[in-house]
Computed example of a mutant assay.
Amino acid sequence: MKVKPVLILILILTLLSCNFSKKPEKLPKTEQYEKLIGKWKVINSNFLPFEHISYCEKLELNSIFEFNEYGELKIYKNRTEKRNCNGNQKFWIDKNEIIVFESDFGFPYEILKLTSDSLKIKTERIPKYLYERMTIQNAIEFTNEKIEFIKENGIIITLEKTKNVG
């Protein structure tokens, strides 16, 4: 397959117009962001394992949430994990919610408590693994006590800020 010179020129001009050296913008220096930025370890949850959208299935105690000053969120399954389990996600704070955004969708964590060393968040997200026994035949009436618990209470996750996670 031959590539037309016009297409090559368009590609070159597109690449030249991209500013690859541009640094991402930092989040505003508000009290909420100042408290949130850093690494947080999950120390309690009213439901385990819980899930974070985009490949972070069955998270447990000692999972790590890392919020950086550029609005990037990385989640690690435990303290020793070197690779984050979530995709390329951004976050921002909107009133009493942390909004997490990835590609073309976003979802909230309600902030129940945020101090310089304690974070308590709530999600209504029902983990996919709870639907493993669902079939086409029972889909309409499918439920179980775990799903009902989440529908009634949500999943409340308590985290503490860590100084050294390695």
Rank of each mutant, 00 (worst) to 15 (best):
L73T: 00
E51H: 07
Y70E: 02
I37G: 04
Y109L: 12
F101P: 03
I136E: 08
K90M: 08
E102C: 13
K113T: 14
P28Y: 02
G38E: 00
V6W: 13
D94L: 14
N46C: 04
K122N: 09
D94C: 05
S21N: 14
E102F: 09
G87S: 15
L130C: 04
F47W: 03
E110V: 10
I37N: 06
F65N: 01
E34F: 02
I43H: 03
R83S: 12
G87C: 10
G106D: 14
K22H: 07
M134T: 03
K35F: 13
L36M: 03
T80R: 06
L61D: 04
I121F: 09
K35V: 01
I75G: 01
L73A: 05
I121K: 07
M134E: 12
R133A: 14
K77G: 05
L15P: 03
L36I: 05
E57T: 11
L11T: 11
V3K: 08
S21Y: 11
L112M: 14
F65R: 01
E97D: 13
G71L: 01
W40T: 03
I93E: 02
P49V: 06
I75P: 01
S116L: 05
K4N: 15
L13Y: 07
I126S: 05
K113V: 13
Y76W: 05
F50R: 01
K2M: 09
Y109Q: 03
D94I: 12
V42W: 06
P5T: 08
T115R: 07
Y109R: 04
I8G: 00
I126A: 03
E141N: 11
D94Y: 14
T30M: 07
F67C: 02
N44V: 02
D117E: 13
N19M: 07
L27M: 10
Q89N: 11
S63E: 05
M134S: 06
I98P: 09
K77C: 01
C56H: 05
I98K: 03
N46H: 08
N19F: 11
N19V: 09
S103A: 15
K58I: 03
L48N: 08
K95R: 14
L61H: 08
E60P: 01
K128Y: 15
F67D: 00
Q32P: 10
E97L: 09
S45G: 07
Y33H: 12
I53L: 14
L13N: 09
P5K: 13
K113E: 15
M1N: 14
F107Q: 09
N84Q: 14
I98M: 04
Q137M: 09
D104P: 05
K120V: 15
I121W: 08
D104T: 15
T30L: 02
F50T: 01
S17V: 06
N44G: 11
